[in-house]
Design a protein around this nucleic acid. Structure first.
Lengths: 302, 302
DNA sequence: ATAATAGTGTCTTTCAGACAGTATAGT
DNA sequence: ACTATACTGTCTGAAAGACACTATTAT
């Protein structure tokens, strides 16, 4: 349809668009930052014991200023001819070489001084990958990528009552470690309630070896991952095709940072899985049935 | 601290940053789009009946190409010296003249062709305002702003079983109306489950009078508002200082689009409110106690 | 008196948490 | 036999849903 209506300047839509020049104004740069999580197995410590699982995050060692030598989230600039999601998928593919993957937009970070180079606004994405599918081709890229074990805990909590409400300050400790490096950060989350108005503020108190504001982005991502684990089926993106319920429970436990009771856990996830006729072998104890994801699981959320 | 380390090109951080020029690359424009919700009262239809409440959204009539004459969300470009949040607050202030307000970032929209003028990436924010505080100074701005009644309903649902899972297609109908105009859109939400990989896609099927991809942004916002209503205290941002529990329930009902049972509703919100010694007057029925928000309500979520 | 809303009590079902018990492989 | 995990049954209490009942005002 050709719209022939005129605007106040007496110009048609076609002419208006042809004359439009976005470059008249200064614009920020836009990047995507990827939180790529996986869960890996350690070695068996004992012929009986199950191998321990750990939550891992992919980071890149910076080879240039700023934050030279520190670790940052993989990511890059959004091209003019690709959508935000496509840019995220492209970065993901570059780092992990996996196509079919769970990916979700998290949040867009837009503080003015968050990147010392220039005004850069960054949209963060979270994706979950099965480490079995990954190990085939990991970090074959030339850049200095490495997986870090993620630990995220509440460190201190303080509540102050005020006249109109209260202030809740919580200090979280984020630890990222592997054989090569040990990174950490403290993130302060301040919730101020005054009358009916509540405000939440997040500040990086101390960032050791983590570039930019990425400690905060990681904190946000871990919290989202934890909360979504409880009411969606995202955990299965971290699992191989076949798995035991014990392994699935381990994944929940390592992400949530708590122990769960077996009987209750099984009840909770019962509808999400389908049993197979296969069993594990060569365990120093009773073999367990293998399950797969139930693709007809009715998920009310999202 | 002055970092004197050199990168691979033998340049210090200081020199690197001084030479950095972001303008070398083409960049998209970044805007914020505001979803400003309020709940207003209709006239009493009967000396006994409570006045009906409706959920309202603020829209702006476009006075220029593209989408000339259609309605869009208020918003604008992010300046180079302000954060994303500050840009959103500025837009909010321009439209409503209110400072202390609930505001939350929703999602960032980054499809390539979403704006015919140029490559524009837009971060959407949702804010909730008390209509009582608002009516003092509403839309005094020169631009053509108006409040629209929001109706959002599931229209059609279709489930197709496939070999590896299923496809769930849901069609939602969004209606925005006031005395002046009647806008509508159909939004299709497609959830594809294949094996363990689930994908959600949202498409605008038909947008009548709503500019750009804003129908989709509104749909996303209404869904977020509904879900947050159930597990947080955001509803109180739509309430005046003092309110009756009946009024509060009306607000919940009009947003959720369902009727709630009084006794159960009261149980649910019991901890969030504090009673006062005041009562409503001149009702054609038993007067009701006035409540205020309980600022010491322990909210576990977020 | 009546129509409308205000406010309370309680039964049932569902679900989460806790815990105790039985089953079964490999060494 | 022992150890570590696999798997099941059931008690409890909390929360959600449904419904019935009483209270109180302006007209």
């Amino acid at each position: 349809m050709t719209d022939t209506r005129l605007n106040k300047q007496g110009v048609t839509e076609q002419a208006f668009l042809a004359a439009y020049d976005a470059r008249k104004y200064e614009r920020p740069s836009v990047t995507v930052d990827m939180l790529i999580f996986t869960v890996t197995q350690e070695k068996k410590k004992n012929y009986r014991k199950l191998p321990e699982k750990t939550l891992r995050l992919l980071l890149i060692k910076r080879g240039d200023h700023p934050f030279l030598g520190q670790w940052s989230l993989p990511g890059g600039f959004v091209h003019m001819d690709e959508s935000l999601d496509d840019a995220a998928l492209r970065e993901l593919k570059e780092e992990t070489n996996i196509d079919t993957i769970y990916m979700e937009q998290l949040y867009t970070w837009g503080a003015v001084g968050r990147d010392p180079r220039a005004r850069i606004i960054s949209t963060s994405y979270m994706s979950l990958v099965d480490s079995a599918a990954l190990n085939v081709k990991a970090s074959d890229d030339a850049d200095d990528a490495a997986w870090f074990t993620v630990s995220y805990k509440l460190y201190q909590e303080q509540k102050t009552l005020t006249e109109q409400g209260h202030i809740l300050e919580r200090l979280f400790k984020l630890n990222l470690s592997n054989e090569e490096a040990e990174l950490s950060a403290m993130i302060k989350v301040i919730k101020t309630v005054s009358g009916k108005i509540a405000k939440i503020e997040r500040i990086i108190i101390d960032s050791q070896g983590i570039a930019f504001d990425h400690a905060q982005i990681i904190q946000y991502g871990v919290e989202r991952l934890r909360s979504k684990l409880e009411y969606t089926d995202i955990a299965f993106n971290l699992m191989p095709e076949l798995f035991t319920l014990g392994e699935l429970q381990q994944v929940y436990e390592v992400i949530l940072g708590t122990e769960l009771l077996k009987a209750n856990f099984r009840r909770k996830i019962a509808g999400m899985v389908v049993e197979t006729n296969e069993y594990t072998k060569a365990a120093g104890h009773r073999p367990s049935k293998l399950f797969r994801f139930n693709p007809n699981w009715e998920n009310t959320a999202e």
